[in-house]
């Protein structure tokens, strides 16, 4: 099983690692191909992605909008690509826009390393401050935990 790890590193970084059973170019492409992104970057269960715009080139912008089908609540992640090094590395800047507030920008470096017949992805998110990182990690904590436990239930009863 390919497990995800999420670790706070230093003052402002959050490091996420995950292995995939596909070559780096396939995983890289799935991050920059708008048709593919719409199929997997959907967020928690019950959310949809009504809008996904992307200009996958250095300096190009992107904007992903999610909507909770139950409440109608929406948020958008908007940013631009700083550096693209296919199929090894994507560097971008992003900020999250919610009704009434926009988070400070964070810098995201996503690296894809060949690992046997698969790929190990390491995503390093650098927030503008330790407070911003804490906010990002803790947002919807209870909801996230409930969701994880639902998943665990399904896993152990399968």
């Amino acid at each position: 099983m390919n497990r995800m790890t999420m670790v706070m590193s230093g003052e402002t970084d959050l490091v996420v690692t995950r292995r995939f059973n596909a070559a780096p170019n396939a995983v890289y492409d799935a991050h920059l191909n708008v048709e593919k992104v719409r199929r997997w970057m959907l967020g928690p269960e019950g959310w949809t992605m009504p809008s996904c715009e992307m200009d996958p080139q250095e300096g190009g912008t992107f904007a992903y909008t999610w909507e909770d089908s139950a409440s109608g609540e929406r948020f958008t992640i908007r940013g631009h690509f700083v550096r693209l090094d296919p199929p090894h590395r994507i560097e971008h800047i992003e900020a999250m826009e919610m009704p009434g507030m926009t988070t400070p920008e964070s810098r995201v470096v996503t690296e894809f390393a060949k690992d046997g017949d698969g790929t190990v992805m390491t995503m390093t998110i650098t927030y503008d401050s330790a407070e911003s990182r804490q906010g990002a990690v803790e947002s919807g904590m209870e909801e996230g935990m409930a969701w994880s436990y639902d998943n665990l239930d399904r896993m152990v009863s399968a």
Partner: peptide
């Protein structure tokens, strides 16, 4: 200072996203 993050919406979101990416890559 390195702390493993076990819960939260961001973690749940990424886990769900990457499970779907697994399916797509398959």
């Amino acid at each position: 200072d390195e702390i493993i993050v076990w819960s939260g919406r961001l973690r749940a979101t990424l886990r769900a996203n990457y499970a779907r990416l697994d399916d797509l890559l398959a």
